[in-house]
Write a protein that binds this DNA or RNA. Structure first.
Length: 211
DNA sequence: TAGAAGATAGGA
DNA sequence: CCTATCTTCTAG
């Protein structure tokens, strides 16, 4: 097997922990069937008790089982009962780190993406945010556990320079894990498709802090 | 067994 | 600012 083949390069990269993969994944093209996005924003989640913000922090459950598979697996979950969000799992089996695909620029299949995202006023909003990205790419819970490079899913790493990468606190993550103590959100500078930062939701007025 | 909180988005 | 919407996890 040719070790310089593109497919192997992706495999080698995704064998690393999400913290290392995150910045290097920006500018990649993630394709799901006829629609493709160029990733402009990702967030790293680290498992194994090292990241209080991760779904895998408290160990394996039926929902997060895909995160414990090997790098290149997709972890899809339902967010707020409505949105389907996608992660690319990183690291060896059992490591449970992943990258939430938070935003991208639609670079192919724009018409299809528009039809799926009728409320988007501009094309830069088609995949601006993890729920929107999942919608534009027609990701479903049935895609949980799929593998990159199989079926409708593929990933192509950027060919050249992607510009400046910015690291900062993650979006909507509660507690310490959402502060710049964990600067694990990576964005491409100056991209209109990058979502706005927002603190964790807190409906019941305050309290309930268990960290 | 119940109940709150959640890696969000859209509309008033 | 408020609400839709529903699964998962944790406490009791």
């Amino acid at each position: 097997m040719d070790p310089t083949a593109p497919g192997d390069e992706v495999t080698r990269l995704l064998a690393l922990p999400a913290l290392e993969v995150g910045p290097r994944l920006l500018g990649s093209v993630f394709r799901v069937g006829e629609v493709a996005v160029r990733l402009t924003e990702v967030e790293a989640y680290h498992g194994q008790g090292q990241d209080p913000g991760s779904h895998a922090h408290r160990g394996q459950t039926p929902r997060n089982a895909s995160m414990f598979r090997e790098g290149g697996t997709l972890y899809v979950y339902l967010s707020y009962g409505i949105h389907r969000c996608v992660n690319i799992v990183c690291g060896p089996e059992g490591y449970a780190s992943g990258l939430l695909l938070r935003a991208g620029e639609v670079v192919d299949g724009v018409e299809v993406a528009r039809s799926r995202r009728a409320t988007a006023k501009r094309d830069s909003e088609l995949a601006k945010g993890p729920g929107r990205l999942g919608s534009a790419l027609d990701i479903g819970l049935g895609d949980d556990g799929s593998r990159l490079g199989q079926g409708r899913f593929s990933l192509e790493l950027p060919g050249g320079d992607v510009g400046d990468v910015v690291a900062g606190p993650r979006v909507g993550v509660s507690g310490r894990a959402g502060t710049d103590e964990f600067p694990w959100r990576f964005t491409l500078a100056g991209e209109p498709s990058v979502s706005s930062w927002r603190p964790a939701v807190r409906r019941r007025g305050g309290a309930a802090e268990r960290w």
